[in-house]
Design a protein around this nucleic acid. Structure first.
Length: 274
DNA sequence: ACGAGGTCCTGCGAGC
DNA sequence: TGCTCGCAGGACCTCG
């Protein structure tokens, strides 16, 4: 499930493949991934557009072009790939968007469950959209104080606040679970009740884990692949996510699981995280 | 403002 | 073996 490290990996892999390329013809297999743009406007807009840059914002891959900006949010099962060979059957079945480029290769957005979304925005709309997203946790400007501001005043569970894209960019269920375990914070603790020491540890561990996950090219549980089609390897380093009922790597206590926070699977050590 | 719950979407694994 | 059902969940929505 592409969160910040996964989308960062995809963007780094694809940037040299697409920047400077011109899009030729595009096709779309399903309309239900579009938000605020019609099939016709998207396909017509993409045809002939030159890619000026590819960046990441939160969990979005952002293709800026000499026309509008193509924003891809992979959701649960989305993947972006560049391919030269014709698509094999499995790949073709889930290829939602296919864009022929001027070097003959295809840029593919593949999404099995289609919980991902595609946007086609002008500069002003993209700026506004981006302003509605919280700070980037790997930005040098994201200090412990900035994390404090994201958590301040919220009576919600700290885990839910970490995953709230309006407050903080790019953190989803996997990395929220992992960061809270590493920082030894109970995921259900009210965000506003974190002590300064809690916040300092959470800031440090969140940054450390996101960087380590990028170095590992992301976490592959099911469908996620990098921009080159390879699985990531951070699943080998997960300490709590997916480990409910298994022993805590720190103290050996059986890890607990709950769906009480925002109906998302939460795994934690009730002994280490208080 | 907050929590709870529904919606989208499909593959997968459990259970019968 | 073949079926149904619940679950996975990011973002967004409505309701109370």
């Amino acid at each position: 499930m592409p969160e910040l490290p996964e989308v960062e990996t995809i963007v780094r892999d694809l940037r040299p493949e697409v920047v400077g390329r011109r899009f030729l013809r595009a096709s779309l297999s399903h309309d239900d991934v579009l938000r605020g743009v019609s099939r016709r406007a998207l396909l017509h807009g993409l045809a002939g557009a030159r890619v000026l840059g590819l960046t990441r914002r939160a969990k979005h891959a952002v293709f800026s072009t000499d026309r509008r900006t193509l924003v891809v949010q992979p959701g649960m099962t989305g993947a972006l790939l560049v391919t030269e060979a014709p698509l094999v059957r499995e790949a073709r079945q889930y290829a939602v968007l296919q864009v022929r480029m001027d070097d003959g290769r295809l840029l593919i957005y593949r999404d099995i469950r289609r919980l991902g979304t595609l946007l086609w925005l002008d500069q002003t709309s993209w700026d506004e959209y981006s302003l509605g997203i919280g700070p980037e946790p790997l930005d040098p400007a994201f200090t412990p104080r900035a994390l404090g501001r994201a958590l301040d005043g919220s009576r919600q569970a700290v885990k839910k606040v970490l995953m709230d894209q309006r407050r903080l960019a790019g953190v989803g269920n996997i990395y929220a679970n992992e960061a809270l375990f590493a920082a030894r914070i109970d995921p259900s603790k009210e965000a506003r009740r974190l002590t300064p020491a809690d916040r300092a540890r959470l800031h440090r561990e969140l940054g450390r884990i996101l960087r380590a996950a990028i170095a590992a090219e992301g976490t592959t549980f099911r469908d996620y692949v990098t921009g080159t089609g390879e699985p990531g390897s951070f699943q080998l380093e997960l300490l709590v996510y997916g480990r409910e009922g298994e022993p805590c790597r720190r103290c050996g206590t059986t890890l607990s699981g709950t769906h009480a926070i925002d109906a998302r699977s939460t795994v934690f050590c009730h002994r280490c995280q208080r």
